[in-house]
Simulated assay, not measured.
Amino acid sequence: IMNVNSYIVPASNHILFHPTDSHDAVMRFNTAPTKGFEADVGSKTTFRLINTMVLTVPAYKFLEDPQYRTGIIIMWDPSQYKESLHKWILKPEFKFFDRFIKLRKKEPDQPFYILNPLNTWQLWDIIQENSPEKIHPDPPSSGTLGILLLMKLCDQVNVYEYLPSKRKMDQCHYFSKGLNPACSLGGYHPLIYEKNMIKKLNQGNDTDIYHYGRITLPGLNGLEC
């Protein structure tokens, strides 16, 4: 998800190389797979941003599933609003330290980073500053956290179906059958406010969004406020 302009194409057994894979780097989120979905989402994974629930809940099989061994892992855990790092370490939302130690022993060479939770709330402050009304201090979504991380690293970022295209449906993820409009509009996360802010930063046009599901964002170094 970077410098090369590309687009999502319809699923087809004849597609051998997805345009997303031509990007310099691709970030995937939480449990999102590529196997079996290459025609729609490509196969390349450079970063995977996960929340601590993915690491700690046994059903996600984070220690066993090979999809989590590809790329750099970045993990985040919600804290109370602007809680000190010391208090968060003593009482994280999900008690991930034991599982984290097991992972480091099993995969000592895989790059793995843990976000300081204060970064999450710094992003929330920016969302609030760009919102027309007061919003509840719930942590931003993994998607918006990932966008900000890539904007720090990249000259240009392409994001797909973050702002829903005309194909919008209540299906939460391309790889699951669960239906819930809160996945687009927000429940736990202030999604509608996040999406409004990101749309303001979009350098593409409405056709890119509503036809291809693509937004194009500048890196932070190129952003003019």
Rank of each mutant, 00 (worst) to 15 (best):
I1S: 12
M2G: 14
N3W: 02
N3A: 10
N5I: 07
N13G: 08
I15T: 14
L16N: 11
D21F: 01
S22N: 11
D24R: 14
A25R: 09
V26R: 00
M27P: 03
M27I: 14
F29H: 05
A32K: 05
T34E: 00
T34N: 02
D40T: 13
T45Y: 06
T46N: 03
F47K: 03
R48A: 04
L49V: 15
I50C: 05
I50V: 12
T56I: 05
T56K: 10
T56G: 08
V57W: 07
P58T: 11
Y60C: 02
K61C: 06
K61R: 15
K61E: 12
Q67T: 07
Q67H: 09
Y68N: 04
Y68H: 11
R69E: 10
G71H: 10
I72A: 01
I72W: 05
I74C: 05
M75Y: 04
M75I: 07
D77C: 12
S79K: 05
Q80L: 13
Y81A: 10
S84G: 06
L85H: 12
K87C: 04
K95G: 11
R104C: 07
R104H: 07
K105Y: 07
K106R: 14
K106D: 11
E107N: 12
D109Q: 13
D109P: 00
D109N: 15
D109V: 08
I114W: 01
P117S: 10
T120E: 07
T120H: 08
W121I: 06
Q122L: 12
W124D: 02
I126P: 01
I126Y: 11
I126S: 09
Q128F: 04
S131E: 08
P132S: 14
K134V: 04
H136V: 13
H136E: 14
P137V: 03
T144N: 04
L148H: 09
L149V: 08
L149P: 03
L150I: 07
L150A: 15
C154Q: 15
C154N: 14
C154I: 00
Q156L: 05
N158P: 06
E161L: 08
E161G: 11
E161D: 15
Y162E: 03
Y162A: 01
Y162H: 02
L163T: 03
L163V: 14
L163K: 05
S165G: 05
R167I: 03
K168M: 13
K168W: 10
D170H: 14
Q171S: 04
C172I: 14
F175D: 01
F175G: 00
S176A: 15
S176F: 02
L179Y: 11
N180A: 10
N180Y: 11
P181A: 08
L185K: 09
G186N: 04
Y188I: 15
L191N: 00
L191F: 01
I192F: 03
I192W: 02
N196S: 15
L201D: 03
L201H: 06
D206Y: 10
D206S: 11
H211V: 09
H211G: 00
G213V: 03
R214M: 03
T216C: 13
C225T: 10
C225N: 12
